[in-house]
Design a protein around this nucleic acid. Structure first.
Lengths: 230, 230
DNA sequence: ACGACGCTTCGGCATGAACCGAACCCTGTG
DNA sequence: CACAGGGTTCGGTTCATGCCGAAGCGTCGT
């Protein structure tokens, strides 16, 4: 059967530890070079090339050659969502975190990070719940932006959320908090705005983010959200 | 990294054509015997045993021994959702359907079927869109049941939709229609009710369903939905 | 009690895939 | 113009896994 074969080859893209590690790294939504991914996954550059070739031809990644570098990135949000969905099904393992350096890094990740193109971690969950509490999100009956929520986002991000193929709002279950946070177009725009206004900044080169003092004030003003305990 | 390995082994469960075919067959939400699955996938019984063992220990399937039969079933809704999500990413292939018998079977499947535990196909999409049109579902801002929708479902199914871990309503994109239809607790209860009241009946032993005359009347009364063109 | 049947276990075979090192190509730099 | 450095190609090795058939173990029907 053709369909079963297609499904198998799609799943096969993620069915290797090295490729899985690469995809998890790419979940930060940014472009990595082939060499960075090779070092991250702990394999030789030649091996990384083969894996990236498979992932690109499989449609999960897109590449952009620039000078002598080859940048790869997740192809679209649905690719990111696929990986998130799979990861969400894994055991809620309590973060091994051996050593102080790893422990502080993982604590920063739990506090706040980007998940493809939206906010996740405790920060993402807190923002989502504040929006739900304010009547901007309906999380009881599913996961949808209310009319009030749409107006709020339009005025906060300064742009209208067009109706495209990508869902306006969806819940994304992240694996550290086991709670849903806002994803979809709304989540992406919100994250974009937070970064543009320096309400959050990236920590180093990873996917962890930190809330700035400006951001604390903004969240208090906009959503009546107290972020001191975060 | 441990997490990458876990992700890889989870994906590895579906990264084989035979196991993929089995899982796709199990998407009808019912229990199949090991032999049925072996014949369906075209492999020897001994081979099927190995695959089922992997799928069960991997947590994707649950088994129930009964006499000399071994029944297997998808473990829970999230397992079904995972497979649906993967399948939804595949190319929208225009149904090969060689031969008359296969053609009528696939036409019946497109018309109406169960997708794990809720209604899909044109029937599922039509019901979902009728509910959205009647203000029971918010599909613009995401996918959520409105208060009116909750009342409607409670009175139609005759039972309250308790708040559990499983989402009340979510959109499920099926691969024949490329449109969302109602899944989650609400979708399951609705499908259950439709079957119990004989508004739909299963065709043969597959996952295809047919709308009965009673069902046509009921859908017209409840949702003002005209199903003659289905 | 016997045979039929469904499933499982156990070799054994064959294919595929993951990996590396070495050689090579191309781009940017001193 | 040479050289360094990122990325790719290629050959070769090793290991995993998908498959079957034969034999064995239950359960069910006669």
């Amino acid at each position: 059967m053709a369909t079963a074969g297609d499904l198998a080859s799609l799943a096969g893209l993620l069915a290797d530890e090295t490729r899985a590690a690469m995809c998890l790294a790419l979940l930060d939504g940014r472009a990595w070079t082939a060499g960075e991914l090779a070092r991250h996954a702990g394999v030789a550059p030649s091996t990384a090339t083969e894996h990236l070739h498979r992932l690109v031809t499989g449609g999960l990644l897109v590449e952009r050659r620039q000078g002598r570098h080859r940048y790869v990135q997740l192809a679209d949000e649905s690719a990111a969502q696929l990986i998130e969905d799979l990861a969400a099904r894994l055991d809620p393992r309590p973060a091994p975190a051996t050593g102080l350096r790893a422990a502080t890094a993982s604590a920063a990740l739990r506090r706040g990070r980007t998940c493809y193109d939206h906010l996740a971690g405790r920060l993402g969950v807190a923002v989502t719940e504040a929006m739900a509490g304010a009547g901007m999100l309906d999380v009881d009956g599913g996961f949808a932006l209310t009319p009030y929520g749409k107006r709020f986002l339009a005025s906060t991000t300064g742009s209208d959320l067009g109706a495209g193929r990508r869902p306006l709002a969806r819940g994304c279950l992240d694996w550290t908090e086991r709670r849903q946070h806002l994803a979809g177009v709304a989540g992406a725009r919100l994250c974009e705005t937070f970064l543009a206004r320096s309400w959050v900044t990236r920590i180093g080169s990873g996917r962890a983010v930190r809330l700035t003092p400006d951001g604390q004030v903004a969240l208090r003003d906009l959503l009546d959200l107290d972020t001191t305990g975060l």
